Computed example of a mutant assay.
Amino acid sequence: MDETKYENEPNGEGGAAQPFTTVLGAVLRTTRVKNGSGLREVGRAIDKHPAIVSNWELGSRTPLSEDVAGVLGALNVVGEDKTRIRNLAAVTTPGVVVTGRQDVPHYLATLIDCEAQAAQVTVWEPLLVPELLWEEDYARETLLAVGHAPERAARLADLQTDRRHLREQPLPITAYLGETALTSRAASDQAMCSQLRSLAQLNTSADEQVTVRVVPFSKITLHPGLASPWAIYSMEKRAIVYLGHVESGTFVDDQDRHYSRAADQLANKALSKEESTKALLSFAAKHALNQLEDRDGPPLASSLAEWTRR
C-alpha cells in the first residue's frame, strides 16, 4: 500500500480546494457509504493510504482521474453513475456544470449525493416553492408548466419528492421563498393548497429540521444574490452553491460571499417562522376556497400586504 502522507498529495492550484473537488469528494463518499465499504477497504483495493481516500472525500485533496477510476472499480460502480462520476473527475474549471437529459439526470444525482454529505442547506427561491421541499402534485404540475413532457415531468417529480426520504438523518434546511410562491399559478389550487400546508407542517414538526420563511416583495432588494434561485450546501470543509436550470445544474464557489451575504439579508427581512406558518396556512385556505368555488382568478388575497391588512 502507498504510505505517502496525504499532505503531499497533489491538489490542483497550490493545495487550495476547488468547488469541483468538494462536489467530487461528496459524490465519492456517498457512493462508498452506499456500497457499504470502509476507507481501509477502498485504500487496500487501490493501494492508497485510507487518509488519502478520506481527504479526497472531504475535498481537501484532488484525486487524479486514474485514482477515481480505481475507486469506482473497487466499489463496482457501473453504467450512468460511472459515467457521471468520471465526468466530474475530468473537470478542471472552478465551477461545475452538470447536464441532465438522462433517465436519472446527472445534475440531480450529483445534488442528491451532495445532500447526503451536507451539514446544512440554505435555499432561496423567489418565485416557486424550493425543489427540495416539493410535494408530488406540485412538483409534477410545476415541471409541466416549465415545459417538460408529461412522462418526463412525472418521472422527475418522483425523483424530486423522493429526495428527502433518501437520507438516514433529517437534513437541516432553512428555506426562504418570495411571496409569489404563495400565489403562483404554476400549479392548480388543489396542488398549491396541499403544498403550502405541507410547508406549514414542516415548520411545526418536531421530527423535521426545516425552517420555512416567507419574504415579502417590499423586503427584496437589488442584491445580486437575490436575482435568481440558489442553494448553499455547507459541507465539512467548505460551502458549495448550487444554481439549478431546466436541464442542468451548476455548482460554484461562493466567490466574494455574494450568496452568504444574500442569506444574511434574507434572515433579516423575512417573516418569522411563526408568522410564515400563519401566512402559509392562510394562503392554503384561500387556494382551497378558490378550488371549491371553481375560480380561475388569483387567490382572494393577492399579496402579503393585503393579507396582513386583513
Rank of each mutant, 00 (worst) to 15 (best):
T4G: 02
K5Q: 07
K5C: 12
Y6R: 08
N11Q: 01
G15H: 02
T22P: 09
L28D: 04
L28Q: 03
K34Q: 15
N35T: 14
R40G: 07
G43F: 08
D47F: 07
D47L: 11
K48E: 13
P50T: 00
I52K: 03
I52Y: 00
S54K: 00
W56G: 07
G59M: 14
R61F: 05
T62H: 09
T62R: 14
S65T: 12
E66M: 00
G70K: 12
L72C: 10
E80I: 08
D81T: 10
T83F: 05
R86T: 13
R86K: 07
R86H: 03
A89C: 04
G95T: 13
T99V: 03
Q102N: 06
V104I: 05
P105T: 06
A109V: 12
T110M: 10
A118W: 07
V121D: 02
T122D: 15
V123M: 04
E125L: 00
P126L: 05
V129A: 03
E131T: 10
E131D: 11
E131R: 04
L133Y: 03
L133N: 01
W134T: 01
D137A: 15
Y138C: 11
Y138L: 05
A139K: 01
T142W: 08
G147K: 14
A149L: 15
A153R: 08
A154H: 02
R155Q: 15
Q160I: 14
T161C: 14
H165L: 04
R167F: 09
R167W: 07
E168V: 13
Q169L: 09
L171V: 10
A175Q: 08
A175M: 05
Y176W: 10
E179L: 04
E179M: 02
L182P: 00
R185V: 01
A187C: 11
A187S: 08
R197K: 13
S198H: 15
L202T: 04
L202K: 04
A206L: 07
D207C: 01
Q209I: 08
Q209G: 07
V210W: 12
P216F: 03
P216L: 12
T221L: 11
G225H: 09
A227C: 00
W230T: 01
W230G: 04
A231I: 01
A231V: 07
A231R: 03
Y233W: 03
S234E: 07
R238G: 03
R238K: 07
I240S: 02
L243N: 01
G244D: 13
E247D: 10
G249D: 10
F251N: 03
F251R: 00
Q255A: 09
D256V: 06
D256S: 04
D264P: 01
L266K: 06
A267D: 15
L271D: 09
L271G: 11
S272V: 14
T277E: 11
L281E: 10
S282H: 06
S282R: 01
F283P: 02
F283L: 14
K286R: 15
Q291L: 09
L292M: 13
E293M: 12
E293G: 12
R295E: 15
G297D: 15
P299V: 15
P299D: 06
S303P: 09
S303R: 05
E306N: 06
T308Y: 06
